[in-house]
Design a protein around this nucleic acid. Structure first.
Length: 271
DNA sequence: GCGGCAG
């Protein structure tokens, strides 16, 4: 909503970046936007600061880093509230009252509680290489708790289901038929749970992806065909269909291709 | 009604 269309990639594959949640905080003269976003590489949090003059700066945090940051915020605000009033006679070195550092992959985050003529604030800066480009935001110290609470809300919402799934997903499966293997793999993405069925031969591989909600219909269609092939037309009871070969010969018009086409046409959409 | 140099 702030910078709108740069997140949108109309010519290509639609949304490159999705916004999953957002919170806005007004802290003194500044506004902060905490956004949970997602792109093809995963989820992350964007913290954007908008100054009173409209200047904006932003940093990005992996969810794990955001959780670490949240914990540091508690410690920083605790320390801050234990502080006496600023003493002009006793200025700390470089104005740094307390510092922490976080690392994630090749990113470094420096957290400094600092103080200047305007007051105390937490500076959060992000760099990749030492001395290289950096981006940073500065949170007025009085707002650290509010900031931490907003971050906690977002993390509670988006880290718990990260852990919740995976364990619930069923195991994959496989079977061997004649000279081919079939693999049943269960996966999950932002659009839900799916099953990928791969047919694998020595120099051939193909697969279809079935959204979870379509499984019952696939099952019913397959079950239907199993019944049809095992029951010669005219015999009603379950006892009549012992010979699959005879059954197939008699119930004529199910060719292999129409069988496949029937199933494929029922796939509502790709996951 | 701000406004924040540096590992």
């Amino acid at each position: 909503m702030e910078q709108g269309s740069s997140d949108y990639d109309p010519g290509h594959q639609g949304h490159v970046e999705q916004e999953l949640a957002t919170k806005m905080l007004q802290i003194q003269s500044k506004r902060f936007y905490l956004d949970v976003k997602q792109n093809r590489r995963g989820r992350f949090i964007k913290v954007a600061e908008i100054g009173a003059d409209g200047r904006r700066s932003q940093i990005f945090l992996a969810l794990s880093t955001a959780a670490e940051f949240r914990d540091h915020l508690s410690a920083f605000s605790e320390y801050y509230s234990s502080l006496g009033p600023p003493n002009p006679d006793n200025v700390p070195e470089d104005g740094k009252l307390k510092s922490e550092m976080m690392m994630k992959d090749n990113r470094r985050y420096y957290l400094d509680l600092k103080e200047n003529a305007r007051g105390r604030f937490l500076r959060v800066s992000q760099t990749i290489t030492r001395g290289g480009p950096r981006s940073q935001v500065a949170i007025p110290a009085q707002g650290m708790i509010e900031f931490r609470d907003a971050l906690t809300d977002l993390l509670d919402e988006f880290t718990q289901d990260e852990h919740a799934y995976k364990h619930d997903l069923p195991e994959g499966n496989q079977m061997h038929v004649d000279n081919k293997n079939f693999y049943f793999d269960i996966g999950q993405n932002n659009r839900g749970v799916y099953m990928r069925i791969s047919e694998v031969k020595t120099n051939f591989r193909t697969a279809i992806t079935l959204p979870e909600k379509s499984w019952p219909r696939f099952r019913d269609i397959l079950a239907d065909y199993c019944d049809k092939l095992n029951k010669p037309p005219g015999s009603q009871g379950p006892g009549g269909g012992q010979g699959a070969v005879r059954g197939r010969a008699r119930s004529a018009p199910i060719s292999r291709t129409s069988w496949l086409a029937t199933i494929l046409n029922k796939i509502p959409g790709q996951v």
